[in-house]
Design a protein around this nucleic acid. Structure first.
Lengths: 118, 118
DNA sequence: TTGACACATTCCCATATAGATATATGATTT
DNA sequence: AAATCATATATCTATATGGGAATGTGTCAA
């Protein structure tokens, strides 16, 4: 099996930095494709393809306005990512569990060794 | 260019569900590879390969214990994901901007049409 | 030393890109 | 209708998988 499609879910869609950048731009408000092309400085077909991926996972929605297509953000599909990653918040905020272990080691070392040994 | 390597950053590493599951298991405490193999129900070489990816982005750390290798979680590389996605929290908590637009449309319809159209 | 156990790595395959280029589609203007 | 503008899609290439099977490596037991 190959890697899962980028359109499988938001996790995969958002793994690509350019797509995150697009979402960042859309967070500032609705934008046309050409707007995005100019802001990103990449080829138009590539932007369209990225937008397609984002559309397929529901992260953006389109509205036709004359010959332009206005894209807007829909953050809802990001919530599963938020929920998942939030449950790990402790694991970087609390760097003290490890510290505990180190302190215990130091206590033991205190008993006789110098411990200059990284 | 192909897709970015899964070892490029945590975003890519975590796009794979099996790797998220591994982190979920490690969140409960240190585990040996065999433990993970049993818990996941997948082939051992595959688990080792996923662990390698997680190791390369710093999401797990290893400790040798006899012939076993004990893996433990390091959540720090998840922080960039958290920070990025957190800035979108409004965009799903606040589903009212859209509602506003709908209400405006309804007001207009009120002026003459029945609007039985969902 | 031999054997068993726990993992990691290598090789192979099918698949899915990201990007570049060329072209198709659809709306607006002239 | 013809030309133009704004986007989307099709085609091609190089690359990076995830998974399966086989094999390599290091540790402990007999």
């Amino acid at each position: 099996m190959a890697r899962a499609a980028t359109t499988t879910d938001a996790f995969n869609a958002v793994a690509e930095p350019r797509r995150r950048r697009i979402l960042d731009l859309l967070a500032g408000g609705e934008r046309s494709v050409n707007d995005l092309v100019a802001a990103l400085g990449v080829a138009q077909p590539l932007v369209s393809k990225h937008l397609r991926v984002l559309r397929e996972v529901g992260l953006v929605e389109v509205r036709d306005e004359g010959r332009r297509r206005m894209y807007r953000l829909n953050g809802r599909p990001l919530k599963p990512i938020y929920d998942w990653v939030k449950s790990y918040e402790q694991s970087w905020a609390q760097r003290f569990e490890r510290l505990d272990a180190v302190l215990e080691e130091l206590k033991e070392i205190e008993n006789g060794d110098d411990g200059d040994d990284d």
